[in-house]
Design a protein around this nucleic acid. Structure first.
Length: 607
DNA sequence: GCCGTTTTCGGCCCGACTGTTTTCAGTCG
């Protein structure tokens, strides 16, 4: 798919035009077109073929033509034209915090700055400081910006950001002036990665009012892990905080109690959601800011988020879906989804033990799953091809299945000892002679399973006679990331003994983009064979991602939200999976491990 | 450049912070 490529071209046009002082709205239009393409899960080439480009929001006559031009010729004249006299390296300088298009254009035009080296030179020799509107402090800030940029690395993963936020919150709670404190921003929206952390605070009224925000800000800037204080005003401050891997920006905003809802709404974002909401308000003759909803000078709402959205005659969209992906329209029509919740999850269908590469025994993992309040867990150790992970030979797998059966029986005995009125549960079998199967009556059931490699030839790494004895078969790609991945996954989906495709894209947020796979084709195959796709909750995966989850839902494909736990604490990752599921608009019926054990097994049998 | 239950032209979210300014521009989120 060329979607990302074309989006990048539009971004570049926007940067170049901005540098050349082109009208802001034109620049914005290119950026919006780029964002739309980035989020598009349909192939833009297909849409071009069927003449549907203009149906993409933000794509109009001009950008549609440029897309077609690029698809036909591999080039975009407008980009070459916009880049005239500029270089990619120059545009890259825009990523330096504090260095915007105006200042960069000034440095470029007046001092011939084209590269990072040029910029450092004019920052160092005082020539930039002498230009109109510039001064020593600005130059100082830019020097800092260059340093930050040079040491900047990837965004934080959701789990890492959460840890930083929790520590900062704990620090802030040390002083009595802090009354309420909430992380907002992309963290509250549970984005898979977090650029910076936003924290909202209300001041306690017990102390003299005017001092409170100042003291809170002062305490914030003294957070022990602070690397730099970027800014500190009367109501808001920004610091950079050291983490194990790199520094992250943390913004703090202090607000009065009666504007808390408006501020929470504003600070949660996303920016696109807020712009849409504020535009809507403007059409109604209202104005929304972080201080409230205003009719003329009069504030008509602001205390709670509910009040703010109510002025637009809509319920509160869950934070996870505030991305301007249709949630405002849905809310206005009263059609907001009832998103899946952590408490809806009844089991985990992808779990490893020390038999393969897990760190805990079968018994320990089972206890941990029970402690989560689940009704079932599927034990899915690796298959032999995953030698590096101690994949199980057929004999070892059979031994594991026997152990699971025995453990199930033991659990049912203990459970019925407590409740003698219930009949003794019969042993669960995959398939009985007459095609029916009987269900274990224990309140907790261990399902037999495996995470089976999809081999280079597309076959699962266990023979069908083995697979058909397992309750849950998760098939995953662990090798041959570039070798016909789409075809191999679709072959696996066609196999009636395969239930779930594990981490379908194979991406690792901190390390790699993913397999060379056409997810649209995978979704199509999953739909065709009625199979389940995994949302892997491992914080570095979160795979499928929010966009493809939504697409899967729309196609009627069901999702298993699994942790891929290799240790007992990994079961906690379920919260990241559920958060991502929510971002994908998934509801309880979309998630197979919200089903009761009986219903789940019925569903898997249909495969 | 995009877009339209008041518009095919005339709009396009809103405010804080900083620094260099005598009232505002640039940047950011």
């Amino acid at each position: 798919m060329k979607n990302q490529e074309i989006a990048a071209q539009f971004e570049e046009i926007a940067d170049a035009l901005e540098l050349k002082g082109e009208m802001q709205f034109k620049v914005l239009a290119y950026r919006r077109a780029a964002r739309s393409l980035e989020e598009l899960t349909d192939d833009v080439a297909e849409l071009a073929k069927s003449g549907k480009l203009r149906e993409i929001p933000g794509i109009g006559e001009g950008t549609a033509k440029k897309i077609v031009e690029y698809l036909d010729t591999g080039k975009m004249k407008k980009l070459a034209e916009a880049l005239e006299g500029l270089s990619e390296e120059l545009l890259d300088l825009l990523k330096i915090p504090g260095l915007g298009p105006k200042t960069l254009a000034l440095a470029h035009n007046e001092l011939g700055v084209n590269t990072l080296a040029d910029l450092k030179r004019v920052l160092g020799d005082g020539t930039l400081a002498q230009l109109p509107g510039m001064g020593e402090k600005k130059v100082d800030n830019l020097r800092k910006g260059v340093e930050v940029r040079e040491h900047a690395s990837a965004r934080l993963r959701l789990d890492q950001a959460l840890e930083v936020a929790e520590k900062v919150v704990a620090h802030m709670k040390l002083i009595p002036e802090v009354k309420e404190i909430t992380p907002a921003g992309s963290l509250r929206r549970s984005k898979e990665t977090i650029g910076d952390i936003d924290i909202l605070v209300t001041g306690n009224g017990d102390t003299p009012r005017r001092d409170v925000p100042l003291r809170i800000i002062a305490h914030f800037t003294k957070y022990p892990e602070t690397e730099t204080v970027l800014s500190a005003g009367d109501t808001k401050a920004s610091i950079r905080v050291k983490t194990a891997t790199h520094a992250v920006q943390v913004d703090l905003r202090v607000l009065p109690q009666d504007t808390y809802g408006a501020a929470l709404q504003y600070f949660t974002g996303s920016k696109e959601h807020n712009v849409k909401l504020r535009t809507l308000a403007r059409e109604k003759g209202l104005k929304i800011s972080e201080y409230g909803v205003f009719k003329g000078k009069k504030r008509i709402a602001g205390r709670t988020e509910k009040d703010v959205y109510a002025t637009m005659k809509m319920p509160v969209p869950p934070p996870e879906i505030r991305e301007d992906r249709g949630e405002i329209e849905a809310a206005l029509r009263g059609k907001l989804p009832k998103l899946v919740e952590l408490s809806d999850i009844k089991g985990d269908l992808h779990v490893h033990t020390s038999r393969s590469d897990g760190s805990f025994t079968l018994e320990q993992m089972v206890e941990a799953a029970k402690a989560k309040g689940y009704a079932y867990v599927a034990i899915t150790d690796h298959s032999p091809a995953a030698a590096y992970a101690g994949g199980l030979s057929i004999d070892r797998l059979k031994k594991s299945m026997e152990d699971i059966d025995r453990l199930n029986e033991e659990m049912s005995r203990t459970d019925y000892h407590r409740d003698a009125a219930k009949p003794r549960g019969t042993r669960r079998k995959k398939k009985s002679v007459d095609g029916h199967f009987t269900i274990h009556n224990s309140p907790f059931t261990i399902l037999t399973g495996a995470e089976v490699d999809i081999l280079p030839d597309g076959k699962p790494d266990y023979p069908d006679r083995i697979l058909e004895q397992l309750d849950v078969v998760v098939c995953s790609i662990h090798q041959g990331f570039r070798k016909n991945v789409t075809g191999r996954i679709c072959d696996a989906l066609a196999n009636p003994n395969v239930d779930i495709i594990g981490h379908p894209s194979g991406r690792l947020l901190s390390r790699r983009a993913g397999y060379d796979v056409d997810l649209d084709k995978v979704l199509e195959c999953a739909r065709k064979y009625g199979k389940v796709l995994e949302l892997n909750s491992y914080p570095d995966r979160l795979d499928l991602n929010d966009l493809y989850l939504r697409k899967a839902k729309e196609m009627g494909i069901r999702i298993a939200v699994n942790t891929d736990a290799h240790g007992i604490r990994d079961f906690d990752w379920m919260k990241y999976g559920v958060a991502t599921a929510r971002r994908g608009w998934l509801e309880k019926p979309d998630v197979v491990n919200c089903l009761s054990l009986n219903a789940l097994l019925r569903l898997l049998r249909k495969n």
